[in-house]
Design a protein around this nucleic acid. Structure first.
Length: 431
DNA sequence: TCTGGGGTCCTACCTCTT
DNA sequence: TCTGAAGAGGTAGGACCC
């Protein structure tokens, strides 16, 4: 008889743990990693900081008020990516069926590894020991028959903050098929996939708080309250009906970049420069991934936090900076920026293989050559070696890369109004 | 107390085509 | 030829996740 074989592995306070590993003097102190500017948010907090009420996604300014003595560290996304790659490499030694969810989190299906490595719980303990020995990082592992319950189990295995410092968790929690429903029904509905504040509120309106109450609710009531898809899905989840397999290779559905400015931007030419820069970065990522897309989306968040999106679908897939920028720029032309722009984003979806490299009537062959040359220069000399001319006009020499100012614009007195925020080098100021 | 960035999925509405 | 229904595709926005 087979035991539970889905593992959910989650590194504990990942970004903070990497910082502590690199600088042991931080151990035992309240540490907060994230955006350090006035518009930044917390990306990760040590358990000592969590005791003061600090949690991820909280505005950094609020975190500073809650715990003025905490060490605030600007994130080093490149370093975390490196540590994450090592973590995922360890996971791969247990099974090839690894689905990466985030830098610090993955599902594993170890059903096929039982004969070689033992049952699910045995593999979970071995994996935890390997991560600690090889990487010096601590992780929590949930073992269950399904993704849904494996994730909840790893959550239960985590350390907890307390007045006297973190209280160690069990490290591994195993949920067998017989206990699965009871385990699930004890949790609050907010722990289900797809239940955020809005859905939680609506369910609370029906008097539903724990998953058990949701399960007892007739499915029609859920559908009436939450809509067809969400109502049915949540009812299934409440009865542990979650047959999603572990998918090692998931194809991206969109690629995009967005950026919050340190100060709202009011000048259209400056925004056009940012648009060109973001579009160029998105196009470069598409080409690197061997993809092209047909739908270009522009996202604009105004000073009052009102957010709009505008999109346009083109006939043929595109993957060059000028093509993406041209579409995004047209969308920007239709937006009234009078109240000032806080955030600008460009993304491309409806992805597929890139267009054949033969000439088309609407494709300027000279641009193809230029694009190839740009990619070549970036491979040789780095992403910052070349940037679109329009971006230079906006003061944006720096090429946008995934993970840049990931948690908001940095604190920098040199950032005046209508300037691109952040410059390479300042990211690592602390070291 | 003032709210990041990179995504996915769903819903509603509109227009166009059959 | 006109009309309405149904479906497909595009567009916009919201909720959610890490």
């Amino acid at each position: 008889m087979a035991g539970p074989t889905i593992l959910h592995v989650d590194l504990d306070a990942f970004f903070v743990a990497v910082e502590v590993a690199d600088d042991p003097s931080l151990a035992g102190r309240p540490v907060v990693v994230g955006g350090t500017g006035t518009r930044g948010v917390v990306a990760a907090a040590s358990y000592e900081a969590r005791y003061h009420g600090i949690h991820s996604a909280m505005p950094t300014a609020r975190a500073r008020r809650l715990c003025p003595d905490a060490v605030f560290i600007p994130g080093r996304h490149d370093r975390y990516r490196e540590a994450s790659a090592a973590f995922h490499a360890v996971l791969q030694t247990f099974t090839p069926l690894v689905e990466g969810i985030a830098l610090d989190e993955a599902f594993l299906d170890v059903g096929g590894a039982a004969r070689l490595l033992g049952d699910g719980p045995a593999i979970a303990w071995a994996l935890r020991a390997r991560v600690a020995d090889d990487l010096g990082l601590s992780c929590s592992v949930g073992v269950a028959p399904r993704k849904l319950t494996a994730k909840l189990a790893s959550e239960s295995a985590k350390p907890r903050p307390s007045a006297r410092g973190p209280v160690a968790g069990s490290g591994v929690v195993v949920v067998g098929a017989d206990d699965e429903i009871a385990f699930l029904h004890r949790h609050p509905v907010a722990s289900l996939w797809g239940v955020g504040p809005a859905t939680q509120q609506r369910l609370a309106g029906l008097g539903v708080t724990p998953v058990g109450q949701l399960a007892a609710l007739p499915v029609e009531v859920g559908i009436r309250t939450l809509g067809e898809a969400a109502g049915r899905r949540l009812h299934d989840l409440a009865w542990a009906r979650d047959e999603r397999p572990v998918e090692p290779q998931r194809q991206a559905k969109s690629v995009g970049h967005e950026e919050t400015f340190a100060v709202d931007v009011h000048q259209r030419p400056v925004l056009e420069g940012h648009t060109a820069r973001l579009a160029d970065a998105v196009a470069a990522r598409l080409r690197r991934a061997g993809l092209a897309g047909r739908c270009v989306q522009l996202k604009v968040r105004f000073g009052d936090f009102r957010t709009i999106t505008r999109s346009h679908t083109v006939t043929d897939p595109i993957d060059t900076g000028p093509a993406v920028a041209g579409a995004a720029r047209q969308l920007l032309d239709g937006v009234d920026i009078g109240s000032g722009v806080r955030l600008l984003g460009v993304s491309v979806s409806l992805l597929g293989p890139p267009p054949a490299r033969q000439l088309r009537l609407d494709d300027d062959p000279s641009w193809r050559e230029v694009t190839d040359a740009i990619d070549e220069i970036r491979v040789r000399y780095g992403d910052d070696a070349i940037a679109p001319g329009a971006a230079l006009g906006a003061g944006g020499v720096r090429t946008r890369r995934a993970g840049d100012h990931q948690w908001g614009p940095e604190a920098d007195h040199r950032q005046g109004p209508d300037r691109v925020v952040g410059a390479r080098g300042e990211w690592d100021d602390r070291r």
